[in-house]
């Protein structure tokens, strides 16, 4: 029952969001087709005299000349059927094709960095709040506090400067060496990983700090709980108390936070991809926004909101497995 309500709520969220992202670019005074044609004529030096006519023709082709309400109804219908429409800027490619091309890069980067930082951050946070930790572990808290607030984009910039530009240890950007062919050889994969290292690090550093601080706050609260005290009275070793009594309880709210944080992670990821010139969703979105490419913008935004809501649902389903108290309440 609870899950059904939840699914309905999330569907509603998706609908509201897609309505917003449908209308915003369309009520803009900018016209993507005219801008595209103007850009073409600038780069080729050929300015067609009947520009307005061509614009009209294209508008008609993509159905942009119809009233907004009708466009909305038709487009939402096609989205429901799984068709996100064509790209205005890179026609005849469809939005799905573009997203699918970019997706593996983004997923690879975001999932790996999120997992790494969630595990690492929570471990660090738990350790810094644990009274028996050595001093140097607790000392990590101060840099964490600073790091938490710094956008990954800036960390990436600094990493590029120090690691790539100064020390020349890693490439400054791109997904792989220019001139290599995309293939599944060990050499190519190694090259890709080398290129992913700095963007990954930029993303991990600040979210590790985010999780660590959250965990630390929870940890301090949990330490005052009677059950941790009683566990000590039982003569349990520090390791067992740490694992079963302290971390397991402190981790629960963190898991709930995971879904919401993912929205933020995507945003940071998009910016970092932009910075490193990676061919992921970030780069695609950047281009689409510059060109006001309605359908691609909608497609990416829609895709992001779907993944965030699906993740929220997943957390809702998994959470009762971790916290026995919830199961009873939802019955």
């Amino acid at each position: 029952m609870y899950l059904v309500r939840r699914v309905l709520f999330l569907l509603f969220v998706i609908w509201v969001t897609s309505t917003i992202i449908f209308f915003i670019p369309r009520i803009s005074p900018r016209n993507p087709i005219r801008e595209r044609l103007a850009e073409l004529s600038r780069s080729t030096g050929y300015a067609p005299k009947d520009l307005e006519k061509i614009v009209q023709a294209y508008n008609q082709k993509f159905g942009l000349d119809k009233p907004l309400a009708q466009q909305y109804a038709e487009y939402m219908g096609s989205v429901l059927r799984g068709d996100l429409g064509p790209s205005l800027n890179q026609y005849p490619k469809t939005v799905w094709e573009l997203i699918l091309e970019a997706l593996p890069w983004t997923i690879g980067l975001l999932i790996s960095t999120t997992l790494i930082s969630f595990v690492l951050g929570n471990m660090l946070g738990a350790l810094t709040a644990w009274p028996k930790s050595p001093r140097w572990v607790k000392g990590l808290m101060a840099p964490m506090m600073m790091l938490q607030g710094v956008p990954p984009y800036l960390l990436g910039l600094l990493l590029i400067f120090f690691v790539a530009f100064r020390a020349k240890l890693l490439p400054m950007g791109g997904a792989y060496e220019i001139g290599t062919r995309v293939s599944f050889t060990a050499q190519f994969i190694f090259d890709v990983l080398r290129h992913q290292l700095l963007p990954g690090l930029a993303l991990v550093l600040s979210s590790v700090a985010f999780w660590a601080l959250g965990m630390r706050g929870m940890g301090i609260t949990i330490q005052g709980e009677d059950y941790v005290n009683f566990a000590e009275h039982k003569g349990l070793g520090a390791m067992v108390i740490f694992r079963d009594y302290y971390v397991r309880n402190a981790l629960l709210p963190q898991v709930t936070g995971l879904a919401l944080a993912f929205g933020q992670v995507i945003v940071s990821g998009v910016l970092v991809e932009q910075l490193f010139g990676l061919p992921g969703l970030g780069g695609l979105l950047g281009k689409a926004i510059t060109a006001n490419d309605y359908f691609v913008i909608f497609g990416i935004a829609f895709f992001i909101i779907i993944s965030v809501t699906v993740l929220m649902l997943l957390v809702d389903i998994v959470y009762p497995l971790l916290d026995p108290r919830i199961r009873i309440d939802s019955k």
Binding site: D226, A231, Y245, N249, R325
Partner: peptide
Amino acid sequence: IAYIPQGAMNSLNPVM
């Protein structure tokens, strides 16, 4: 030597 706690309400780990 064993200790039986004061606040038995919260003295047991809720997730175990």
